[in-house]
Computed example of a mutant assay.
Amino acid sequence: MTAGRQLALDLPHREALGREDFLVSDSNAAAVAAIDSWPDWPHSGLVLVGPEGSGKSHLVSVWRQLSGARTLSVRDVAGDPQALMAGAGAVIIEDCGPGLDETAMFHLFNAVERSGADILLTARTEPRAWGIGLSDLMSRLSRLPVVRLEAPDDSLLLAVMMKQFADRQLSVDVSVLRYLAPRVERSFAAVRDIVARLDRAAIEEKRPVTRALAARILNEDEGETG
């Protein structure tokens, strides 16, 4: 191992995922307002749409805490709907989209309606883009309001970057944040990636996160794609 460096272990860090930790801007205000409006949801459901890393998982966590919802994946939907809904007053189905089991989803919707539960679906695209062939399922999906998380604007990107560093207990000068913000892909996934890499580099090299370190990490990206 090179002198002056130490092994950066892949130890987990705790992200703050409460409602008070969710940063609001024009790009996500509608989605936040929709989650906050529960339990006064029309048709007792909602579809939350946005790209990977847009904040869907955070809002799902917020709603789970509010509602006590049971979380299912699209693969879980193929199980017995009565068993899936047993004792659940609310349910979350994550990562919906093309290729889902339409018959199983339809039966689950029926079980949800019979139990009087609320349902939150997450997806990258709106239901009309899923290629649903089962008209009864499409009818039920069409009743649900769709709210979208847009790509983060400048103020939100900077704030999320600051929060990501804070979640890792890293103190970073605002000049570093302002240097990074216009140079990373405009997505929360990209922000998480660059913050994680800077955290790792700072641990390995026993140094703070500086603009010089940020520039080097970004230049390594350019070298890989050049």
Rank of each mutant, 00 (worst) to 15 (best):
R148V: 12
A88E: 12
E15D: 06
V91S: 01
H107D: 14
V77G: 02
S27G: 07
A215G: 14
F109L: 11
E220D: 09
E205Q: 07
R211H: 06
E126N: 03
F109Q: 06
K206V: 15
Q65D: 13
R200A: 13
L198S: 14
S44D: 06
A166N: 00
S142T: 07
F106G: 10
S135V: 14
P39H: 13
F109E: 04
E102P: 04
G4L: 05
A212L: 11
L108Q: 09
P208G: 12
A83G: 12
N28S: 13
D10I: 01
F188E: 02
I119G: 03
A123W: 00
E94I: 00
L7A: 07
F109N: 08
I203K: 15
V172G: 09
L17K: 05
R178W: 09
W130E: 10
R186P: 07
L120V: 03
A104M: 04
A33E: 13
P51T: 15
L46Y: 00
V32M: 01
L144S: 08
W63C: 07
L23F: 05
L134F: 06
V24H: 13
N110K: 03
A111D: 12
A86L: 08
A8E: 01
A215D: 14
L177Y: 14
V195Y: 09
G4E: 11
V172Q: 09
P145R: 12
E222T: 11
V195T: 10
R183E: 10
P208W: 14
V146G: 04
L72P: 00
G18R: 11
W41P: 02
D95M: 00
L84Y: 00
R168C: 03
G223H: 15
V172Y: 10
D199I: 05
I35P: 05
D193S: 07
D153A: 02
D40R: 10
V62F: 00
S25N: 10
D199W: 12
L213V: 11
P12C: 13
T125I: 00
A159E: 12
P152I: 03
L180V: 05
A196Y: 04
V195D: 09
E102K: 08
I119P: 07
S139R: 08
L72Q: 00
P145C: 04
A166M: 02
F188G: 15
M105H: 02
M138C: 04
Q82H: 05
G133A: 13
R143A: 12
V60I: 13
A166E: 09
L84G: 07
Q164F: 12
E15R: 05
A86V: 03
E113P: 02
T103S: 11
S142E: 15
G18V: 00
S139K: 05
R19H: 11
R186T: 10
L156V: 07
A215T: 15
L72V: 01
G50R: 10
R211G: 12
A111H: 09
E150Y: 11
V47H: 01
S139L: 12
G89P: 07
